[in-house]
Write a protein that binds this DNA or RNA. Sequence first.
DNA 1: AAATAATCGAGACGGTACGTCTGGTCTTACC
DNA 2: GGTAAGACCAGACGTACCGTCTCGATTATTT
Lengths: 191, 191, 191, 191
Amino acid sequence: MAGRKRDEAARQAILQSTFELMREEGFSRLSIEGVAACAGVGKATIYRWWAGKGALAVEAFLTAAEPLIAFPTSGSARDDIVRQMRLLAEFYRGPAGRLVREMIGAAQCDATIRTAFMSDFLEPRRELARAVFRRGVAAGEFRADVDADVAIDALWSPIYYRFLVSGAGMEDAFISAHAEIVLRGLMVDGV
Amino acid sequence: MAGRKRDEAARQAILQSTFELMREEGFSRLSIEGVAACAGVGKATIYRWWAGKGALAVEAFLTAAEPLIAFPTSGSARDDIVRQMRLLAEFYRGPAGRLVREMIGAAQCDATIRTAFMSDFLEPRRELARAVFRRGVAAGEFRADVDADVAIDALWSPIYYRFLVSGAGMEDAFISAHAEIVLRGLMVDGV
Amino acid sequence: MAGRKRDEAARQAILQSTFELMREEGFSRLSIEGVAACAGVGKATIYRWWAGKGALAVEAFLTAAEPLIAFPTSGSARDDIVRQMRLLAEFYRGPAGRLVREMIGAAQCDATIRTAFMSDFLEPRRELARAVFRRGVAAGEFRADVDADVAIDALWSPIYYRFLVSGAGMEDAFISAHAEIVLRGLMVDGV
Amino acid sequence: MAGRKRDEAARQAILQSTFELMREEGFSRLSIEGVAACAGVGKATIYRWWAGKGALAVEAFLTAAEPLIAFPTSGSARDDIVRQMRLLAEFYRGPAGRLVREMIGAAQCDATIRTAFMSDFLEPRRELARAVFRRGVAAGEFRADVDADVAIDALWSPIYYRFLVSGAGMEDAFISAHAEIVLRGLMVDGV
DNA sequence: AAATAATCGAGACGGTACGTCTGGTCTTACC
DNA sequence: GGTAAGACCAGACGTACCGTCTCGATTATTT
């Protein structure tokens, strides 16, 4: 038999409360208890639909952040890449950066978060980057003998390294200096 | 001032217990309570000498791991760099990798850990890398107009990215492919 | 009036499941949730027809136990009384005793149970006792100046006291010793 | 080694809060959570020292009630007994009665409560009664061939029966009528 | 030597949050 | 309209650790 349907209003209230609390206090202070109280919802309702704090946070983050991070693509592949890197660095310097940072942090101890964050947030963005790179190869800008994933890692990794590990700045000047080095290694000689 | 000296035996017992527990169960399951019980030590003794779980874990990790990660330097700068990258990737693929990963993860929510880990673990290693890079510049292998920190990030970041974010493999083939790209951008033309 | 009739099969299934679960695990472990699951019935169906766990348990108990506790009456009033007391003590020593005990226990916090248990279980049995006592008075066995309810309490109360409070044994020897005392007080002098 | 001593102030606060809450809302509404909040105490502190809600309630009740129930004994055994019965009935008709009732109720499902209540509350009172009865035997008031425990049950049980089971009144008139019957059976003939 | 002072182990304390459980209500789809 | 299924809000359960705080016992220095 059927039974009552999932209450969409409760689902929304939970996700919004989660995002709100996370934005105000950070992922580490987030508690299921707090979300339930803030959303006016029983704890069991949260545990029924989400595996834990991590899964909830990732979904809340994506739901709230998805509209904000549409990276535009146009012009030459080289220019698109540098522009994308600058936009990403800017995005991570902003308020959402802290959340991304804390969630990647939490993902180190929790495979659920890692998987969810990877497949729902990072992979789509990476696919975009692959398309741009391939466009560059097709246009004769980039060497054809380089693996796209290696190239993409070479280009974007330092943003994550500075963001997650060293905490060093990610200003446009750094992005330019870094891109100059790697693109020199990626571009067809003499171009 | 008078008073009893700090008990070195207790300090060692605490650090060893911390490392042991961390190795067995991971950083996230580590608890001060557990360390105290395992080391046969009062909790207050831990809180008196360490700021918290993070600081304790970092020190325990470094004490135990330091002997294992002495990167040798010799030969050409280019070769030394690639060899170092391979050793680092190998180190992170091993059992210590999980601990480093979890500690960098925890550092995202805890500035104490971040600072301790940075200054005691990463910065010394980075200083070594800077020395090698400068040697390469002096030897005419590398371009003189490139900032050492930008170059180092360009070289080593993908290891951390794959390690922390994408989870992709870090085999020697990848290291070689990546190094080839970046070194092409770093080396003096025609060399 | 339109609408489906009450489903007698569901009612039976609920009562049987209640008795079953109560017999296996005791009244305190009984839960509406469990009854619903065991009977293959919605929780709402139970709440629609019974006031709560207590009311349900009492009805289930009476339905199942009623056939087992028909106290026979015959012979002299004095003998009937002692025989009844022995049978009651035996009944309470058996498996049903635990249920009665737990239900009287629950009745201390729940007037619903108290009322239901009283009117449906105890009062009918008491009425029987009154009849026997009155027969004894009519036959000249018992003093006519004693209130039947006081006499009945004097006779049967110790069974309940030992059963509910002190936990002391209720063997035939005790019943005899007790009855001897009280009957001495109840019988017409010189009989 | 020793460790910190138990905090007597916390103990008192817990017992008083327990009694307070129990008096206001009854045993069934009592919750450890509520006691902790009311006493300004961590839940763990309660669980550290008491086995559960039952053990806590019994101790709180005894602590608070002990001063109120010192039954005086003097005069003839017969008179003492009737006076004690009247005092007990009065005590149970009062506010403490509800608590005793609920605790005996809870004891039906929880051996911990039963044991604690028996040994700490009932048995001491019973021992007093035994002493009085033996005094009566020694004084030639009571028959020497009657077991003290049987006699005591015969005398006091109806108070408990009416209190716990039938809910009938326990006024002095009833006590007198009941005592008259049983004492007739207990006293030496012709006295 | 005695007095002083900081450290140690143990562990109780007030708290927070956990994840589970049950209670009683409400909704939906089927009969 | 009654029913089975089951989601919902509510809130207590007992547990695990947190970081702080006594305790007494144990060293070292300083008088």
